[in-house]
Computed example of a mutant assay.
Amino acid sequence: MKRILITNDDGFESPALLALKEALTPLGEILIVAPSSEKSACGHSLTLKSPLHFIKVDDDFYKLHDGTPTDCVYLALHALYECSKKPDVVVSGINLGSNMGEDTTYSGTVGGAMEGCIAGIPSIALSQMLQDKNGYYHGDFALAKKVAYELVERILTKGFPLDGRHLLNVNIPDCSIAEFKGYKVCELGYRLYGNDAHLHRNPRGEEYYWLGLHPLEWEEREGNNSDFKALFSQYAAITPLKLNLTSYGHMERVERWL
């Protein structure tokens, strides 16, 4: 029996998490460890200054009190699995909202997959594009479940296509199965950001800022095979990511600069 570890960053009550469990249950033994509350945009962060504890939700389903997706994967691997019985794959998602371009550096969904990658386990991050930027999804996750099943089944039967310290980042278009055009292997696009920090005052007159949501915009470049372009063309975008961020092509330039 294959073992599948699932986490997310939208929290243990996310309907997309339950949809992922339903999709992958035919493929093996599922263990879910998810944050007790939403941890969007927490990146690849560990909780070091407060205690963490598991709360059982159901059989093989735990929430980690105030934990991040990275905490969930780290502790699941070290506390819930025996050393000789690690999961065959780590799946992080299904995130409510896309994670493309530089958003991958903010993403808790990608962060959870990174932790599985560090542990030497094939890892994949899954994100569902939303037309409603407020994060509400009105679909039935049918396409997301199809994509999750097909890709994880391929990993379990044919092996992972990447070497160590690499993971797959997958974004799913907001369309029906009938409209779905298939898969494209893509590079990360150039995400465009603006200033969406809103200044307010509380009832005591103290100033505070609330960060808003940026429109899903990117820079088109000649010959660019971006995840943005694929997704808006109704393809699922698959991007191989590596944890080593070294810019090897610039090392000599930095040496000269020194």
Rank of each mutant, 00 (worst) to 15 (best):
P26L: 03
P15V: 04
K39Y: 10
L27T: 12
T7N: 03
G43A: 03
E38R: 15
I6T: 11
I32D: 01
A19K: 12
L18Y: 10
K2H: 08
V33W: 15
L17G: 12
P35K: 10
D9Y: 10
L5Q: 12
I32T: 14
S37D: 09
S14M: 02
E13F: 06
I6A: 00
K39S: 13
S14A: 13
P35L: 02
L5C: 05
I30R: 05
K21D: 07
L27M: 07
S45M: 04
V33H: 13
G28K: 10
F12R: 13
L17F: 03
C42G: 08
I30A: 00
S45Q: 10
E38I: 14
L27R: 10
L20H: 03
K21F: 09
E29R: 13
H44L: 07
L17E: 02
E29V: 03
A34Y: 07
L5E: 06
T7A: 00
A34M: 04
P26E: 00
S37M: 12
T25G: 01
R3S: 08
E38A: 12
V33R: 15
K21A: 09
D10E: 08
A16H: 13
A23K: 09
L18M: 10
G11E: 05
L31E: 01
A23S: 14
F12K: 12
C42Y: 14
C42T: 15
D9F: 03
G11A: 05
A41L: 11
L20Y: 06
E38W: 11
S37T: 07
L31Y: 12
H44N: 11
P26D: 00
R3A: 03
G28I: 11
T25D: 12
P15Q: 01
S14C: 03
N8K: 08
F12H: 12
L31Q: 07
C42L: 05
S40L: 09
G43Y: 06
V33I: 15
I4C: 05
D10R: 11
A16Q: 11
L27A: 00
P26Q: 00
D9Q: 07
K39P: 01
C42P: 05
S40W: 05
A34C: 08
A34V: 03
E22Y: 10
E29D: 15
I30C: 04
S36T: 14
I32H: 02
A23C: 05
N8I: 01
A16S: 15
N8D: 08
S36E: 07
R3C: 00
T7R: 08
A23E: 08
T7V: 00
L24V: 15
F12L: 04
K21N: 12
A16C: 10
S37N: 13
P26W: 01
S14K: 06
L27H: 09
I4G: 03
A16M: 04
A23N: 06
G43W: 06
E38F: 10
L24D: 13
L24S: 12
I30Q: 02
S14N: 07
E29M: 05
L17W: 06
P15M: 00
A19Q: 13
A19T: 10
I4L: 02
N8F: 02
S14H: 09
A19M: 04
